[in-house]
Write a protein that binds this DNA or RNA. Sequence first.
DNA 1: GTGGTCTAGACCACC
DNA 2: GTGGTCTAGACCACA
Lengths: 130, 130, 130, 130
Amino acid sequence: MLFAINDRDPTPLFEQIVSQIKGAVAEGKLEIGQSLPGVRELAEGLGVNLHTVHKAYQRLRDQGVIGLRLGRRARVARRDRPAGKRIVNEKVVRRLEDAASEAAMLGVSADEFRRFVDAIVARKLNGRET
Amino acid sequence: MLFAINDRDPTPLFEQIVSQIKGAVAEGKLEIGQSLPGVRELAEGLGVNLHTVHKAYQRLRDQGVIGLRLGRRARVARRDRPAGKRIVNEKVVRRLEDAASEAAMLGVSADEFRRFVDAIVARKLNGRET
Amino acid sequence: MLFAINDRDPTPLFEQIVSQIKGAVAEGKLEIGQSLPGVRELAEGLGVNLHTVHKAYQRLRDQGVIGLRLGRRARVARRDRPAGKRIVNEKVVRRLEDAASEAAMLGVSADEFRRFVDAIVARKLNGRET
Amino acid sequence: MLFAINDRDPTPLFEQIVSQIKGAVAEGKLEIGQSLPGVRELAEGLGVNLHTVHKAYQRLRDQGVIGLRLGRRARVARRDRPAGKRIVNEKVVRRLEDAASEAAMLGVSADEFRRFVDAIVARKLNGRET
DNA sequence: GTGGTCTAGACCACC
DNA sequence: GTGGTCTAGACCACA
């Protein structure tokens, strides 16, 4: 299975699923037109409720990431939109600030911090459009 | 007043307060031993309920950022135990991963992400020892 | 019901709840992964307010004893990280010192104290590996 | 100075003072009839408010540990009483249970636990009557 | 005046 | 149904 749920992460389950599928699409692990696992199938694979996967798929459809047609498997759609840049940035910036605050209080240097960022960006954000 | 609440931000109020105080401590705007505004005082200043601020203070105490004693004002705690590089790095990396996950989920590009990091590092981590 | 509140005890209600649940976990009465009663359910069972139980659950989550996920019941968490003998011992010793301070302050003799220890060790720590 | 305040200890300041003086008496560091430092003097020495020391002295007088006479220094009195054994024991036992729960969850063995107890009892509870 | 606890009731998001 | 947040008001113990 490509995807996995992290129980220690407080992020809602359906958001984790959404995130992972979007990530897989962005990284090219899932190509345009390729079909996704069925709702029940993925739900069982992840050990979550059917409704949770369903909600994730709905969300992905609302965001234009996948296409859903009654009776057919979900398929990766063509493009993504920018969404409300304003609030998006606010959330990310807040989390970065928390990380920096923690770093400052624990005596981590700016260089070390940047090195961490590089490693994580390489792992999580590569292959994404600007 | 040093702090401010953003009502449009879906982040819980008490977390916003926690973040801001941690940030102020990290940036040196609040020094060790300095006393914070009283619970009621800050609550009124921010236009939130007394209990909301109280919850934020409790959280900050649990994280070792401030010291709370019944009948005395809250004070910025001295940061003892660097606790060993291992654990420190883990903590910071975990928070950075949170930020990156959030970014990935919201479609922020690696470049944008790095730009955010640069701005924040400049503000919070400049002139720190390695 | 496994738990009970002692109204004559000046210890805060939520702390009593925390202690009892931690105790139950330690003694194996509550196993890893087992789900705890819902907040409202336990509150009614104990005759306390919903928020009081909620506070106890939050505290237990912060201490890593239980896992909380929105919409799901609370579950006993798996105890990862033995964290190194050093830290572990420090934690236990600190709590024992609290107990001894309390005893000293209240005029409990060393003999009495030891008798208490014997009873509790027999109940909670028997058959554990070194 | 014989006494010291521990700011990291959440125990109220006046209780810490009470505890230390009772301890000093029990260990013989303060003999019967010996005079204690004046309220202002001790307050300054400990870096606490005058009222806090005053409250501690009052408490000690109520418990029969010291004698207070207007215009004279406080003096160590003859004997102590058992107090409400019931609730006293409850508090101590609860703290010991917390320590044992923590130990059990962290994998500390019964033997190790007893060794910790021995060390702490030797340090904090020696020379006390049953 | 300070933090800390408890009750109460409303509303939200998640499952 | 679940946990999570916020408001509100009362009361307590400590400094």
